[in-house]
Design a protein around this nucleic acid. Structure first.
Lengths: 153, 153
DNA sequence: CAAATCTCTATTGTGTCAATAGAGATTATT
DNA sequence: AATAATCTCTATTGACACAATAGAGATTTG
């Protein structure tokens, strides 16, 4: 039930680009330093995100990356699915990455039913949240006090 | 965002034991055959579930396994946490398996906030569903028609 | 031309995971 | 007591994925 480091880096990098949407391109090295991501590893990831159509690049001096589409147009689900694969906890309940499992009767497997609900819950969030939402949240968290506990009282 | 094969086998084996709760013990081989799980692999897993206190065994001829507690007392969350570790998609939002991540400011990370919601959604289901619930579902699915689509119309 | 950047492919190291192997301990049955 | 059927324990293997590194190449700016 885990996101790979690669997937996490991808989202962190996209967040940086989303926060700079509309401005000039951002260099890999800047993202790398700001987010503590190994530069050469980040190169691969950004290139991969280009194939997704989430990102575009300019080469040469003064080169860099920027979002290829508006941030409200890029969901976490699309990113994670492209980088990692299925969002579902088991592939027998995955829509796009379906694989038959080894259980005796998939159609009547109660575990599968529950896992389907888990999948729904995860997909609901991941398909709904966009990079724009992350930017909004970032701003709110910026102006919030150290801990949210202050509000809970 | 995936459950390991080991974790899936564990739940499938426990389902068999839950369906036989109150009866005599069940042999590893029976579970192995019924669920298409490699026998020697299953041995390890059942032994591991003993450490969790979900299962108890009798050795020797006429030996086998049975649940150590009533099925309504064993949640999927407890099983998966014991076999796999965190339910959270990233360890920085995990309660019991927390690890600091490499992002610059964890407290104000909007990604972390979203991942926390994913965690909540998953945990809510996994902590609520017990082996007894799986048995109920199994029975309902047994008497249901081939596809659920019939009802959706 | 030179410097800074992105591009591409290969490789490496590490670790995890699924599975197998086999000797050992325990129990029921005869 | 002997035997057969089970669980028990630890080690090992093989395959693969993952994170990271390396380096030569292409492109653009100034």
């Amino acid at each position: 039930m885990k996101l790979s480091v690669r997937g996490e880096y991808a989202i962190r990098a996209l967040l940086v680009l989303a926060l700079n949407y509309g401005d000039d391109v951002v260099r890999i090295q800047a993202i790398s330093e700001q987010q503590n991501i190994p530069k050469k590893f980040l190169e691969q990831i950004l290139n991969d995100l280009k194939a997704l159509g989430a990102v575009e690049s300019r080469r040469g001096a003064a080169g860099g990356y920027r979002l290829a589409r508006p941030p409200q147009n890029i969901t976490l689900a699309s990113v994670v699915r492209h980088i990692e694969g299925a969002l579902a906890p088991v592939s027998c309940v995955s829509d796009r990455f379906y694989e038959r499992c080894t259980c005796p009767d998939e159609a009547r497997c109660p575990i599968r039913a529950v896992m389907g609900e888990v999948r729904e819950a995860v997909v609901k969030i991941m398909e709904q949240v966009t990079l724009a939402d992350l930017c909004d949240r970032a701003q709110r968290l910026q102006h919030a006090p150290q801990t949210m506990l202050d509000y809970v009282i």
